[in-house]
């Protein structure tokens, strides 16, 4: 599903966010990405979501070479990659429903279809009762779940999460991870960047460890 072949990302000024990375994520796999801050986790995710382009090498997502995606086609690529952020990136002047509906509105779905899918997605993350609420009235964990609902509402084959549990206590973090596992069970490919090593080791999934932009370790998950 996701191929990295000798991928290097060099920023202006010579700093290398990612150096010569090689790995392959198969469809339906759930992979954790760990490493110290600044190790290149975010850079790696940003390359997959085409927020940035690599300097050298090749990134393939779903068989598509991202170097060949024209600028005007980037939005269509992003519709197939759900993204979740540590700071949720919600719009605070819109209700939970409207926030979750955004990817579907952007894709031009019909009104009834949007309502149906948003409700299904909110139901999945357990926030159906809060659809009329504004994000500021929700707790951190709830806001993150809204962000997750938004990322999966359009049923993208790939979901990326950048420090999704960064600001949450262990119990809430576990809830979020369980949610990810549920998505994984229905075939979604997940790539989750986190530095919460306890949580990662408990999950028993494949772990990629980055250090100073280099891929240091690739530990296969326990067969569950």
């Amino acid at each position: 599903m996701i191929h990295f072949e000798n991928v290097t990302k060099r920023y202006p000024g010579g700093y290398e966010g990612l150096s010569n990375a090689n790995f392959h994520v198969t469809p339906g796999e759930m992979v954790f990405l760990t490493g110290h801050s600044g190790a290149g986790k975010s850079t790696l995710l940003r390359l997959i979501g085409l927020l940035e382009r690599c300097t050298r090498g090749q990134v393939l997502v779903g068989g598509r070479n991202l170097a060949k995606v024209k600028r005007r086609h980037i939005p269509y690529h992003r519709r197939e990659v759900g993204m979740i952020f540590q700071d949720h990136r919600l719009l605070h002047d819109r209700t939970v429903f409207d926030n979750v509906a955004m990817p579907l509105v952007v894709a031009g779905l019909r009104h009834q279809e949007i309502g149906r899918r948003v409700h299904a997605s909110l139901d999945k993350v357990g926030l159906l009762s809060k659809e009329r609420a504004y994000p500021v009235t929700l707790s951190g964990g709830e806001q993150q779940r809204v962000g997750i609902a938004r990322a999966v509402v359009s049923k993208p084959p790939v979901v990326l999460a950048d420090e999704p549990t960064g600001n949450l206590d262990p119990e809430l973090s576990q809830e979020i991870m369980d949610l990810f596992c549920q998505f994984n069970q229905v075939g979604v490919t997940l790539l989750i960047a986190t530095h919460d090593l306890d949580l990662v080791s408990r999950m028993g999934k494949r772990i990629l460890t980055l250090s100073h932009g280099r891929l240091k370790r690739d530990v296969a998950g326990r067969a569950s």
């Binding site: 939005p75 269509y76 990817p103």
Partner: peptide, 16 residues
């Protein structure tokens, strides 16, 4: 600005 950024993140085209 933040609304535009988020819309771009979730796949909103320039026209949208």
């Amino acid at each position: 600005k933040s609304e535009i950024e988020i819309t771009k993140l979730i796949g909103g085209t320039d026209a949208f």
